[in-house]
Structures are given as structure tokens and as C-alpha cells.
């Protein structure tokens, strides 16, 4: 069974059935790690948070009844852990942007077959998004990352964050407005 089909099968089953937790780890570890990395900007902290997330999930695995999909459930745990970690890291401002910064995001354009000018512009704009998200309030950042890094639907984000769908839209709109304003400032032009 390919990973996508396995993921679908797992989402359709509740945890009380014979779902293998190791398969869940294998499937969702990268997603949780990337969300943590984009949220915390620190590779070590992101790895520790991902471990914590799956540890929490493992402990609660018996109680998981499948009301939400496994992805939504895991992301809810991750969002809470990121919120706690961000509170703890407020005083550790020197750690921010230590691992992940705009310089580390340039490689992504190699498969897009762009002209050199278009590639340079895209790289600059992507770097602008990275920088802009670093300054977003916690909730806006989580909603933005769940939507545009994890490609979750508004309903899934609502379930993962405990917000209403309308509140998700409001936070997402504010985040997009801030990101766009930052990009316009950085590139000196409107999108």
C-alpha cells in the first residue's frame, strides 16, 4: 500500500482498531517537524517539540476515538506545544532565526523552470514570507502555517486550533495582509 493510501486508511479508522502507531509516526513525523521548524525557527527545538508531540500522542493513543482525523489531532497537539514553547522562548530572543532564515530557502526554485529574473524575484518573495511570518502573532502564525505550509482546510485548522471557522478566516486574513505588506516593503513593489 502506498503512503497516501495508508494515510487515507488510517484516517478512516479509529485508534481502537488495529492501527499501528509506528505507521502514524512514519507518516506524520515530517509534517509535524516542518510545522514546528517554521514556528520556532530552531532545528533542535523543532525536533524536541516533534518528539514531545508524538510522545503525547502515544500516551493518549488508547483514548483517541477518531472524532478528528489523525493529522488534525496531531496538529492540535503540536499547536499547543508550539504555543507553550513560544511562551518559554520569549526571553530567549537570541535563539530566534538562528537555524532557519532567508538564506536557507533558495533551493526550492530549481524545479520550477523559471527565467533567472523570475527565479530571483520568487526567491526574494519567499524569503520575505519567511521573515514576515517570524513577526506574526502566535495564533496568526499557526493558522498561516497550517494553511500554506501544511495545506490544511479551514475546517481542519479550526479543529486543530480550537477556533471557529470564522475566527480562522480572520486570523488568516490578518496574517496574509501582514505577509503581503512585508513582501511589498522588501521587494519595493506591489504583488
Amino acid at each position: 500500500m502506498d503512503p497516501a493510501a495508508t494515510a487515507t486508511a488510517i484516517m478512516e479508522h479509529s485508534a481502537t482498531e488495529t492501527t499501528d502507531f509506528d505507521t502514524v509516526v512514519h507518516l506524520y513525523w515530517p509534517r509535524v517537524f516542518r510545522f514546528a521548524l517554521a514556528s520556532l525557527r530552531d532545528r533542535d527545538a523543532a525536533e524536541a517539540l516533534t518528539q514531545d508531540c508524538f510522545l503525547h500522542a502515544y500516551k493518549a493513543w488508547e483514548r483517541f476515538r477518531g472524532e478528528a482525523s489523525i493529522q488534525t489531532w496531531l496538529m492540535r497537539i503540536a499547536v499547543n506545544l508550539v504555543r507553550d514553547a513560544s511562551r518559554n522562548r520569549r526571553l530567549q530572543f537570541w535563539k530566534r532565526l538562528r537555524d532557519v532564515d532567508a538564506d536557507g530557502v533558495g533551493v526550492h526554485t530549481r524545479d520550477l523552470r523559471l527565467t533567472p529574473e523570475a527565479e530571483a524575484l520568487l526567491r526574494e518573495q519567499v524569503a520575505g514570507i519567511w521573515k514576515a511570518t517570524a513577526h506574526l502573532p502566535e495564533r496568526q502564525k499557526s493558522v498561516f502555517l497550517l494553511r500554506f505550509a501544511d495545506e490544511m482546510t479551514l475546517l481542519e485548522i479550526a479543529a486543530a486550533t480550537g477556533l471557529s471557522e470564522n475566527a480562522v478566516k480572520v486570523h488568516l486574513y490578518r496574517a496574509l495582509r501582514a505577509v503581503r505588506a512585508h513582501m511589498e516593503k522588501v521587494t519595493g513593489r506591489s504583488e
Partner: peptide
């Protein structure tokens, strides 16, 4: 651009 951001994170 938002897709580029997602791909940069995936890499």
C-alpha cells in the same frame, strides 16, 4: 509565492 514558501519548507 505561497507555494514557493511551502516547497522551501518541504525541502
Amino acid at each position: 509565492t505561497l507555494t514557493g514558501f511551502r516547497i522551501s519548507l518541504e525541502q
